[in-house]
Design a binder for these strands. Structure first.
Lengths: 249, 249
DNA sequence: CGAATAGTGTCTTTAAGACATTATCGG
DNA sequence: CCGATAATGTCTTAAAGACACTATTCG
């Protein structure tokens, strides 16, 4: 029986209720570390535990619900320049019976990449939210450990094949800043010289602004050229992670 | 407000009902052509139109619902050896308001790769289902054109980085059969010699059975060595599609 | 035999990675 | 000056792609 013929004679109110929520794995880089946005839970179940931000889907597209949740939790409002540049994509949907002890909850998870955002301000509705380095984001409520792990793996993979690393930095950035994004997300240092040449050789990854930074680095070094994101949606050739042989079996 | 604190004081029966369905983009290769499983809709809306197989999610994991739908539509039962080797993965979730004219329906789409299956038999519950070459699968009900397009793009990409092409052939196969899978999914011929060497050079992609086919090809040619799927979950290095420069912008 | 296919060999080009080198800045 | 970083150069190795070629089998 297909979806529609089933629904034709079907009143969903007769069935056990299903709730649809949207959860967001929001990643950013602070002080060279990859961080995820978490909220502190107030109510049962999992009271006091940390969880991914999320909420009930209203009468809106699922993507819009994800943006709304992110906006509510960070205290940032779309239209002020902060949330516009956030990269957002659907991650995966989690719907196992029992993942919420109270009822059937189907949760559509989203993955977001953001440039370094201000810490959510106390006093706002978002006071319970804060950025946590991903290694310390363990023991989350519900199945959010798994959701986060899936999000991290997706993020690491995305950096290989797409220019989405640019979503973690400002509109203008140096190659060194971009390299720090890769280092933070992949969790390993990259060879500066080879990375530099590689990034510039991929068509459409970055384009020069003609400008340079006003000063050199904090610990010395010359001024760096500034770039902005190019028009490529895929990286050809890709920027592959250093292969760990055992990862593929 | 996060998901759980919202739900704590929330009775979903007070809200507009949301239905969760599972749709399946099931792909197979018949006569060298990539085909998708479609069903003919009987009821309104979209009566008489073709749609992807799918249905309401019951009290079961979402993956289980997808397998169940596939089983019901093809008339094949798990445990008879046909559905075991089907590769199944979650594709994407579609939940825009208005995608079903009657009510809010959130649909979790799955992508399935199957070896050539028998045409669903008339007389069974699956009589309305049949395999259609993907180029002819247009004008589908709901937003299923978009779902199918997303599924095809995912399938093409999967063949690059994973050994999932082996899910389209039998447990034992020749390199030539594998090449026909790539040709059908990517829609372009591949150089036989280079493909052959490439497949054998990727660690864990295929392993030799030591056997060969009993006969040569129908139109001539020598007996071919037989292989089975190896233990790799990712292809290193990958089998990249011939690059079309304009695809990446 | 002729056509088609399996499988291998060879060469060129491209890309990745290791490593060195030069230049420029801050302190 | 010293240490750090930006940016470029060189060399080696791996991989992709074009192409040729042999061997085998069917009709």
């Amino acid at each position: 029986m297909d979806e529609a013929s089933f629904l034709a004679g079907y009143d969903p109110r007769d069935y056990p209720a299903v709730a649809v929520t949207v959860d967001v794995v929001a990643l950013t880089i602070r002080d060279g570390r990859l961080c995820v946005l978490l909220v502190e839970r107030g109510a049962q179940p999992f009271a006091g535990r940390r969880a991914l931000p999320g909420g009930f889907a209203r009468d809106e597209p699922l993507d819009a619900a994800a943006i709304r949740e992110l906006s509510e939790e960070t205290g940032l409002t779309p239209g002020e320049g902060h949330l516009e540049r956030v990269h957002l994509e659907q991650l995966k949907t989690y719907g196992d019976p029992g993942r919420d002890p109270r009822m059937r909850v189907v949760s559509v998870a989203y993955l977001a990449f953001a440039p370094s955002l201000p810490e959510p301000t106390a006093g706002s509705d978002a006071a319970r939210a804060y950025w946590v380095p991903v290694e310390e984001a363990t023991d989350l409520a519900f199945d959010h450990d798994e959701v986060l792990a899936d999000g991290l793996e997706r993020a690491r993979s995305k950096l290989e094949y797409t220019p989405s690393a640019t979503a973690f930095v400002g509109t203008e950035f140096t190659i060194g800043e971009l390299r720090q994004v890769y280092a933070a997300v992949w969790g390993e240092e990259l060879h500066a010289g080879n990375f530099h040449r590689k990034v510039l050789s991929v068509p459409g990854f970055v384009e020069s602004t003609g400008e340079t930074t006003a000063r050199g680095g904090e610990r010395g070094g010359p001024k760096a050229k500034l770039y902005r994101a190019g028009d490529a949606r895929l990286l050809h050739p890709a920027l592959l992670r250093p292969t760990r042989e055992d990862r593929v079996r």
